[in-house]
Nucleic acid binder design. Sequence first.
DNA 1: CGGGAGCTTGATGGACCTCAATCCCTGTGG
DNA 2: CCACAGGGATTGAGGTCCATCAAGCTCCCG
Lengths: 248, 248
Amino acid sequence: MTQDRSPLTRRLELLAKLTEQELAYLQELEAGSVHFEQGTEIFYEGQSSDNAYIVQHGWGCSFKLLPTGDRQIIAIVLPGDCVDLRCALHQATDYTFLAITDLIASRIKGLRIERLFNEFPHLGVAMLLATAQDDEMVVEHLVSLGRRSAIERLAHHFLELHDRLTIAGLATGTAFDCPLTQYDLADTLGLSAIHVNRMLRELREQKMMTFADHRVDLLDIGRMQELTGYVGRNHTSIIVRGDNAHSR
Amino acid sequence: MTQDRSPLTRRLELLAKLTEQELAYLQELEAGSVHFEQGTEIFYEGQSSDNAYIVQHGWGCSFKLLPTGDRQIIAIVLPGDCVDLRCALHQATDYTFLAITDLIASRIKGLRIERLFNEFPHLGVAMLLATAQDDEMVVEHLVSLGRRSAIERLAHHFLELHDRLTIAGLATGTAFDCPLTQYDLADTLGLSAIHVNRMLRELREQKMMTFADHRVDLLDIGRMQELTGYVGRNHTSIIVRGDNAHSR
DNA sequence: CGGGAGCTTGATGGACCTCAATCCCTGTGG
DNA sequence: CCACAGGGATTGAGGTCCATCAAGCTCCCG
């Protein structure tokens, strides 16, 4: 069974064929897991640190603070995500990593990452691919902030969360648990919490989705996709070719 | 002298000590350079391609198009930047790469990147560091779009361009050539071209900077930094420690 | 000389922010 | 058991930032 595989292992196996040896090393990398309480700043902007983290359980986020006190959330972090994999290489973090819920993560020293590339380059490339996916998400997020309206940003964000949680086995059907507050959503989407509230009401009245009691239900995914131009995530492996993607 | 070193080589040497062998391989990687005319779409969204590019000369940008026809520029690409280094690994591009001016770049097959990590892991890690810098820029861009006002976005963007061009040896003092139109700026900063125009006028009237005839002059960098909370780029190497950075 | 790309300015309106008040729920301590 | 505080959600009113529409400008190039 796959229960004993970590979330990251499952992700990587979708991206590349890994040998027993590589799997063993990956397991060793993820061995020691640390528990962080809800609200913990696991590392923070300006800290000199060479640790990276692989999230095993719980929700987190990375964000930056502006001199004005405003907060901009860069990304919501879910199980199977790597945080700071590259920043760990140069020993300085430029954002804060916060545990939104209680969170369990494996801590990895920067040096081991360098060793990883030396000893298991193929595994290293697979992890690069995973971070490339994460980067694509950041880019899509940037597009949202630059060119989408408030309601479009919200719809897009929930479609994406739904996709990621489904892949991680944390969502079934159209609904999922979501610990984010409306303030978190506001700081993610570059809006005020008040406007987030109004747009969530709009989405509810339009019967597209509901957001209540830490639970999200996507009632009409089709219309939400239409609204945002969202193209679902490619669930296939790296050997993608031809006519399945990019229909528009 | 360093004239015969490519822009990327110069960047990497700031990030890691490279052996003669690694430098030679890097030079081989960059060997065949291709010339693209101004306005060329070097690759485009949806294309199935496993090429990456290292820019040698000229300005470019990467952008995404929305169903509405809106354009969001992800990043301005300058000499020494790598484009699509990771995407090349999974053979599908999710944005367009456009030559803003005539542009010279080295084309690199995805396979060679995989080989690079196998045979020269240390060099691979150095290139990872360079892309980590690029990612930090995208993150900072995202923060701008989410939480900065129009005038702050402009000031921040020009401060960043100035820093990058200075490092690349393409700016001296406070001024530099800049082929971007006000439409380009608008699509980069998530604004309308008209509003960009007004805010540029504001910056000029405030005697902070000028933008005219494809030439930028930063008249009062101090006040621009104050306005945006911009912290200049670290010009030092990867061995950064202690008290030099992150003063605020 | 005509046309197009880019810049500039004015007027109007809308999307979203800010301020303010209320309500609910949960946890805490007397 | 109840009072109270605090975090989060909700709604209203008013104001601001920025988009949109419209028009005219300059410059370059065929």
